[in-house]
Write a protein that binds this DNA or RNA. Structure first.
Lengths: 187, 187
DNA sequence: GTCTATAAGGGGATAGAC
DNA sequence: GTCTATCCCCTTATAGAC
């Protein structure tokens, strides 16, 4: 009797790997550790993800999907107002930063761990940064200010600073300040 | 005939290691690679640095010394004006960011690579972040504003964002914008 | 005495085989 | 699941060159 493949196995393995990669770093976590934590056999993991690079790519793809969904939700609530959209985007990131499990931006962290690589995970990470930056540029342009370029650069500085505020003395306060900061810039 | 120990050997090894660690990441660079690049024997390196952790600690200590010296120089030119000092500090970082070899803040990069560690290198990195943040807090307090806390948080966001601007579309422009941004905040 | 070169120990990594 | 192959890691030890 052939056993039926358990549904959701791939997702369970990926969720475990994602938590470990994000918390401890991609390089620090070995495949054996993922297998142990997921409580699955080796073949099962390598069946779904033929190599560690594939698993890492899936981890980053999933992080991107989740982030995009949250961003869409935040943007939806902001309606057509580009200023409100920029504030909503910042607030969405601030919400992530306030979580206990926050340990920086998964994509920036990956690029810090593998600065020279140009494989699938690196391309996913770089594309994410490019796309979100473009999103900020777009929204800022729609504000119709004379100093569009300067303003976009400033908002981007705040967003990057917000993502980096892992070691800030008061992370939650930093998140609040960042949102208020962007609010003042767009109003 | 006893050969005299070559002077500057430690410094040469350390400079090689520092360049590699900073450019490619601490985890990605092995001791063998450092030995190869330094063109020395294995025993010589291990004589000066008994373990990789010692070498990494020396790398971060040296980075800190260099950074402190540059910061002192920048602060000296600013005189007693705390606003000018904050701008000078930002400009000093902006200068680093503009260099071709810039690949982020060595201390933040290390903490991203080893988030769970609490050894000598990690303590050096965390102490640096704590000290520079305290420096910003101090200077901001001396501005005598009513919103000292908020202002310090904002400047810190900009500084963190500036350090993170490795992948910005135009790094040099981002650096310029950051300095102008802080200028406006303190004036 | 000082350094290089080489070998080897002990561990852990990815990945494949059964 | 277990077992193995292969590789690279940090580190120590040994042997030889100047």
């Amino acid at each position: 009797m052939a056993r039926i493949a358990a549904p959701g196995t791939r997702e369970r393995i990926l969720a475990t790997a994602a938590r470990l990669f994000y918390t401890e770093g991609v390089r620090a976590v070995g495949m054996a550790q993922v297998i142990d934590a997921a409580g699955c056999g080796k073949n099962l993991l390598y069946g779904h993800f033929p190599s560690k690079s594939d698993l890492v790519a899936a981890y980053l793809e999933q992080a991107r999907s989740g982030r995009d969904a949250d961003a869409r939700r935040a943007l939806g609530a902001a309606g057509d107002d580009p200023g409100a959209a920029l504030v909503a985007l910042t607030a969405e990131i601030a919400g992530r930063v306030r979580r206990r499990a926050f340990r920086g931006c998964a994509f920036r962290n990956y690029l810090t761990e593998f600065p020279a690589d140009d494989d699938a995970p690196a391309r996913i990470a770089r594309r994410y940064l490019k796309d979100t930056r473009a999103q900020v540029d777009d929204l800022t342009a729609r504000l119709g200010r004379a100093d569009t370029c300067e303003l976009a650069d400033r908002i981007w500085l705040i967003i990057e600073g917000l993502y980096a505020s892992t070691g800030a003395p008061n992370v939650s306060r930093a998140a609040t300040v960042a949102v208020r900061f962007v609010e003042e810039l767009v109003n």
